[in-house]
Protein backbone atom coordinates (compact mmCIF):
# COMPACT_ATOMS: atom_id res chain seq x y z
CA UNK A 1 0.00 0.00 0.00
CA UNK A 2 1.42 3.36 -0.96
CA UNK A 3 0.13 6.84 -0.31
CA UNK A 4 2.99 8.75 -1.91
CA UNK A 5 0.79 10.25 -4.60
CA UNK A 6 -1.65 11.76 -2.14
CA UNK A 7 -0.02 14.39 0.05
CA UNK A 8 -3.17 15.11 2.03
CA UNK A 9 -4.25 11.52 2.29
CA UNK A 10 -4.97 10.77 5.93
CA UNK A 11 -5.00 7.04 5.22
CA UNK A 12 -2.21 5.78 7.48
CA UNK A 13 -3.96 6.98 10.61
CA UNK A 14 -7.53 7.60 9.66
CA UNK A 15 -8.42 4.16 10.98
CA UNK A 16 -8.37 5.70 14.46
CA UNK A 17 -11.21 7.98 13.50
CA UNK A 18 -12.89 5.21 11.53
CA UNK A 19 -13.18 3.07 14.62
CA UNK A 20 -16.63 4.34 15.44
CA UNK A 21 -16.96 2.30 18.60
CA UNK A 22 -13.79 3.81 20.05
CA UNK A 23 -14.67 7.30 18.86
CA UNK A 24 -18.17 7.14 20.28
CA UNK A 25 -16.94 5.89 23.62
CA UNK A 26 -14.29 8.60 23.70
CA UNK A 27 -16.77 11.29 22.77
CA UNK A 28 -19.20 10.16 25.46
CA UNK A 29 -16.47 10.10 28.08
CA UNK A 30 -15.38 13.60 27.12
CA UNK A 31 -18.95 14.86 27.08
CA UNK A 32 -19.68 13.39 30.47
CA UNK A 33 -16.60 15.00 31.95
CA UNK A 34 -17.23 18.34 30.22
CA UNK A 35 -20.87 18.41 31.33
CA UNK A 36 -19.89 17.66 34.91
CA UNK A 37 -17.43 20.55 34.88
CA UNK A 38 -19.30 23.30 33.04
CA UNK A 39 -22.85 22.14 33.84
CA UNK A 40 -24.20 23.37 30.55
CA UNK A 41 -24.93 20.89 27.81
CA UNK A 42 -24.41 23.29 24.92
CA UNK A 43 -21.10 24.63 26.23
CA UNK A 44 -19.94 21.10 26.99
CA UNK A 45 -20.80 19.88 23.50
CA UNK A 46 -19.03 22.82 21.88
CA UNK A 47 -15.90 22.16 23.91
CA UNK A 48 -15.90 18.46 23.00
CA UNK A 49 -16.53 19.29 19.35
CA UNK A 50 -13.63 21.75 19.26
CA UNK A 51 -11.29 19.26 20.90
CA UNK A 52 -12.29 16.53 18.45
CA UNK A 53 -11.88 18.85 15.50
CA UNK A 54 -8.42 19.88 16.54
CA UNK A 55 -7.48 16.21 17.00
CA UNK A 56 -8.74 15.50 13.52
CA UNK A 57 -6.58 18.29 12.14
CA UNK A 58 -3.54 16.68 13.75
CA UNK A 59 -4.50 13.13 12.94
CA UNK A 60 -1.06 12.28 11.58
CA UNK A 61 0.36 12.53 15.09
CA UNK A 62 -1.52 9.61 16.48
CA UNK A 63 -0.62 6.00 15.95
CA UNK A 64 -2.62 4.64 18.81
CA UNK A 65 -5.93 5.22 20.53
CA UNK A 66 -4.26 5.94 23.85
CA UNK A 67 -2.19 8.76 22.37
CA UNK A 68 -5.21 10.31 20.71
CA UNK A 69 -7.19 10.11 23.91
CA UNK A 70 -4.48 11.78 25.95
CA UNK A 71 -4.22 14.51 23.39
CA UNK A 72 -7.91 15.34 23.02
CA UNK A 73 -8.35 15.37 26.78
CA UNK A 74 -5.47 17.84 27.08
CA UNK A 75 -7.24 20.10 24.59
CA UNK A 76 -10.56 19.61 26.32
CA UNK A 77 -9.00 20.42 29.68
CA UNK A 78 -7.82 23.82 28.44
CA UNK A 79 -11.18 24.57 26.86
CA UNK A 80 -12.99 23.74 30.09
CA UNK A 81 -10.66 25.96 32.10
CA UNK A 82 -11.42 28.82 29.70
CA UNK A 83 -15.15 28.26 30.00
CA UNK A 84 -15.04 28.05 33.79
CA UNK A 85 -13.09 31.30 33.96
CA UNK A 86 -15.44 33.10 31.60
CA UNK A 87 -18.76 31.78 32.78
CA UNK A 88 -18.97 32.44 36.47
CA UNK A 89 -21.58 30.16 37.70
CA UNK A 90 -25.15 31.18 37.92
CA UNK A 91 -26.84 28.02 39.18
CA UNK A 92 -27.35 27.34 42.82
CA UNK A 93 -25.20 24.66 44.38
CA UNK A 94 -27.98 23.47 46.61
CA UNK A 95 -29.49 20.79 44.38
CA UNK A 96 -26.30 18.83 44.08
CA UNK A 97 -25.48 19.27 47.73
CA UNK A 98 -28.62 17.67 49.03
CA UNK A 99 -28.19 14.29 50.57
CA UNK A 100 -24.40 14.44 50.54
CA UNK A 101 -24.12 15.63 54.11
CA UNK A 102 -25.93 12.76 55.70
CA UNK A 103 -23.95 10.16 53.75
CA UNK A 104 -20.75 11.78 54.92
CA UNK A 105 -21.69 11.40 58.55
CA UNK A 106 -22.37 7.73 57.92
CA UNK A 107 -19.02 7.32 56.19
CA UNK A 108 -17.15 9.04 59.00
CA UNK A 109 -18.88 6.73 61.49
CA UNK A 110 -17.75 3.72 59.49
CA UNK A 111 -14.16 4.87 59.20
CA UNK A 112 -13.55 6.29 62.66
CA UNK A 113 -14.35 5.30 66.23
CA UNK A 114 -16.36 7.48 68.58
CA UNK A 115 -13.05 8.80 69.86
CA UNK A 116 -12.07 9.98 66.40
CA UNK A 117 -9.46 7.32 65.68
CA UNK A 118 -9.30 4.95 62.73
CA UNK A 119 -11.36 1.79 63.02
CA UNK A 120 -8.93 -1.10 63.01
CA UNK A 121 -10.21 -2.55 59.72
CA UNK A 122 -10.28 0.81 57.99
CA UNK A 123 -6.72 1.93 58.61
CA UNK A 124 -5.08 3.04 55.35
CA UNK A 125 -2.78 0.42 53.89
CA UNK A 126 0.39 0.90 51.93
CA UNK A 127 -0.25 1.48 48.22
CA UNK A 128 2.35 -0.30 46.16
CA UNK A 129 2.32 1.73 42.99
CA UNK A 130 4.66 -0.03 40.59
CA UNK A 131 3.24 -3.49 41.24
CA UNK A 132 -0.32 -2.44 40.74
CA UNK A 133 -0.14 -1.23 37.18
CA UNK A 134 -1.57 2.24 37.72
CA UNK A 135 -1.33 2.90 34.02
CA UNK A 136 -3.47 -0.04 33.06
CA UNK A 137 -6.90 0.55 31.64
CA UNK A 138 -8.32 -1.65 34.39
CA UNK A 139 -7.12 0.83 36.96
CA UNK A 140 -8.75 3.76 35.19
CA UNK A 141 -12.03 1.87 34.94
CA UNK A 142 -12.04 1.53 38.70
CA UNK A 143 -10.96 5.14 39.11
CA UNK A 144 -13.91 6.23 36.95
CA UNK A 145 -16.30 4.04 38.89
CA UNK A 146 -15.06 5.49 42.18
CA UNK A 147 -15.33 9.01 40.80
CA UNK A 148 -18.89 8.34 39.63
CA UNK A 149 -19.82 7.06 43.05
CA UNK A 150 -19.11 10.47 44.57
CA UNK A 151 -21.85 13.08 44.85
CA UNK A 152 -21.63 15.13 41.63
CA UNK A 153 -20.56 18.25 43.46
CA UNK A 154 -17.64 16.37 45.03
CA UNK A 155 -16.32 14.86 41.83
CA UNK A 156 -16.75 18.17 40.06
CA UNK A 157 -14.75 20.19 42.59
CA UNK A 158 -12.22 17.41 43.06
CA UNK A 159 -11.48 17.18 39.33
CA UNK A 160 -11.44 20.95 39.04
CA UNK A 161 -8.75 21.11 41.68
CA UNK A 162 -6.72 18.00 40.88
CA UNK A 163 -7.15 17.41 37.16
CA UNK A 164 -7.80 20.89 35.75
CA UNK A 165 -5.35 22.04 38.44
CA UNK A 166 -7.14 25.28 39.25
CA UNK A 167 -6.00 27.04 42.42
CA UNK A 168 -8.34 26.95 45.41
CA UNK A 169 -8.93 30.68 45.43
CA UNK A 170 -9.84 30.63 41.76
CA UNK A 171 -12.36 27.83 42.31
CA UNK A 172 -13.87 29.67 45.28
CA UNK A 173 -14.15 32.82 43.21
CA UNK A 174 -15.68 31.11 40.16
CA UNK A 175 -18.04 29.01 42.21
CA UNK A 176 -18.81 31.54 44.91
CA UNK A 177 -17.76 29.15 47.61
CA UNK A 178 -16.11 29.85 50.93
CA UNK A 179 -12.59 28.46 51.31
CA UNK A 180 -13.65 26.30 54.23
CA UNK A 181 -16.58 24.91 52.27
CA UNK A 182 -14.25 24.00 49.41
CA UNK A 183 -11.66 22.47 51.72
CA UNK A 184 -14.26 20.35 53.47
CA UNK A 185 -15.72 19.18 50.18
CA UNK A 186 -12.28 18.29 48.82
CA UNK A 187 -11.47 16.43 52.03
CA UNK A 188 -14.64 14.38 51.81
CA UNK A 189 -14.12 13.66 48.14
CA UNK A 190 -10.56 12.48 48.79
CA UNK A 191 -11.62 10.43 51.79
CA UNK A 192 -14.20 8.58 49.69
CA UNK A 193 -12.00 8.16 46.65
CA UNK A 194 -9.16 6.86 48.78
CA UNK A 195 -11.46 4.36 50.43
CA UNK A 196 -12.92 3.23 47.12
CA UNK A 197 -9.53 2.83 45.40
CA UNK A 198 -8.05 0.98 48.33
CA UNK A 199 -10.98 -1.44 48.56
CA UNK A 200 -11.34 -2.05 44.85
CA UNK A 201 -7.84 -1.78 43.49
CA UNK A 202 -5.02 -1.75 45.96
CA UNK A 203 -6.47 -4.37 48.30
CA UNK A 204 -7.74 -6.73 45.61
CA UNK A 205 -4.50 -7.10 43.67
CA UNK A 206 -2.62 -9.18 46.21
CA UNK A 207 -4.85 -12.23 45.82
CA UNK A 208 -5.33 -12.89 42.11
Amino acid sequence: MTSAALPIDPAPCSSLFDDTEFMNALRLQMLKFATLQVRNQALAEDAVQDAMLSAYQHIERFQRQAALKTWVFAILKNKLIDILRKEKRYTSASILEEGAGRNDEALLDTLFTDHGHWQKDERPQKWDEPDHGLESSDFWKIFDTCLDALPARYSRLFMMREFLELESNEICDNEQLSVSNLNTTLFRARLRLRECLEDNWFAGETCP
Binding site: Q63, T70, E135, W140, F143
Partner: peptide
Protein backbone atom coordinates in the same frame (compact mmCIF):
# COMPACT_ATOMS: atom_id res chain seq x y z
CA UNK B 1 -5.51 12.23 39.14
CA UNK B 2 -3.13 14.46 37.21
CA UNK B 3 -2.41 11.45 35.02
CA UNK B 4 -6.12 10.91 34.33
CA UNK B 5 -6.66 9.67 30.74
CA UNK B 6 -2.95 9.82 30.06
CA UNK B 7 -1.37 6.72 28.69
CA UNK B 8 2.15 5.75 29.62
CA UNK B 9 3.26 4.83 26.16
CA UNK B 10 5.95 7.04 24.72
CA UNK B 11 3.88 7.94 21.69
CA UNK B 12 1.59 10.11 23.72
Amino acid sequence: TQRYVQSDDTES
